[in-house]
Design a protein around this nucleic acid. Structure first.
Length: 287
DNA sequence: ACTAGAACCTGGCCGC
DNA sequence: TGCGGCCAGGTTCTAG
């Protein structure tokens, strides 16, 4: 499940292997993979052919490749199971291959592979002022961004009226954090996911942000997290940060700080993992 | 304006 | 062996 560290690994792969190359043909194999593209699959195939992909950018979990000229970009979101692979043209198609982009240099082709089809590609105009594509404009900066506003984040967090985990998952407040790193950050900060944001002290707000930054930086240093074969980077290699997770996916295993068994709760149609001793449930929590 | 929850999607896995 | 149901979860849409 790609979150910020995984997406950044993919961005680096794109920057080194795709940036600076000119596309030849584009083949859309599944309409849902391009549902965010205003003109549909045929339109994307035509407008993306013969274009220079200038660089690889990222904000939160969104990736984009600005085209030559700079007023358009190919935007990619991996969703839950999306992969961007650079493969030799002769290698067999992947089962869930959705979009194929070949290049004028005849080298490795860029393939968008996505089993669950939550992800997708789109060609979008780029806003001249922010240098961000249209669909990325509402996404907040992420904790690894040098321009991230820490004080502003802490203030905004404490003005929310919700549970702290919901707030961490809100990409308009802070981007890049998904279910896995939210649980890891909360474990590090010793906060329960249902803790009402309006009761957070400023030190607590600072602490959870610092924890999120630390766990994502550590994951990035190891090449991203992976739990199965769904996530691979642009070269096709899996990350392996899952060995370092302290809470997520560790139901009934002892907390490495205190030994209490990690518990799993259903929360927001997904799972939340907490240490019941280090992260006690607040008396009046917000779900 | 803000918050909460459903919907989208496929394949692996489990129990029967 | 097969089948129904559950689970994984990022984002968008809709309802309140």
């Amino acid at each position: 499940m790609p979150e910020l560290p995984e997406v950044e690994v993919v961005r680096r792969g794109l920057q080194s292997q795709v940036a600076g190359r000119t596309t030849a043909a584009v083949q859309v194999l599944h309409p849902r993979a391009v549902r965010r593209h205003a003109g549909g699959g045929r339109d994307l195939e035509h407008r993306l052919s013969g274009r220079l992909l200038a660089s690889a950018e990222r904000r939160g979990k969104y990736l984009w490749l600005p085209l030559d000229g700079g007023d358009e970009a190919l935007v990619a979101h991996l969703g839950m199971s999306g992969q961007l692979l650079v493969q030799p043209p002769e290698s067999p198609d992947e089962t869930h291959l959705r979009v194929r982009i070949t290049f004028a240099d005849g080298g490795g082709e860029l393939r968008f592979v996505d089993q669950r089809t939550f992800g997708g590609l789109a060609l979008e105009p780029v806003d001249a002022d922010t240098a961000a594509p249209a669909s990325v404009r509402h996404i907040a900066r992420d904790p690894l961004d040098p321009l991230f506003d820490e004080r502003g984040f802490a203030t905004a967090l404490r003005h929310r009226r919700t549970g702290v985990k919901r707030a961490l998952l809100d990409q308009t407040l802070v981007s890049g954090i998904g279910n896995i790193y939210a649980d890891e950050a909360l474990w590090r900060a010793r906060l329960h996911y249902a803790r009402p944001t309006e009761t957070l002290t400023r030190p607590e707000a600072d602490r959870v942000l610092r924890a999120a930054r630390e766990v994502m930086a550590a994951a990035l240093a190891q090449g991203g997290t992976s739990f199965d074969a769904l996530y691979v980077n642009v070269n096709g290699a899996s990350g392996y940060f899952d060995r370092s997770l302290e809470a997520y996916g560790r139901r009934d295993e002892p907390c490495s700080r205190c030994g209490a068994p990690i518990r799993r709760d259903a929360f927001m149609n997904r799972s939340s993992y907490t240490c019941p001793r280090c992260q006690p449930r607040p008396r009046r929590g917000r779900w």
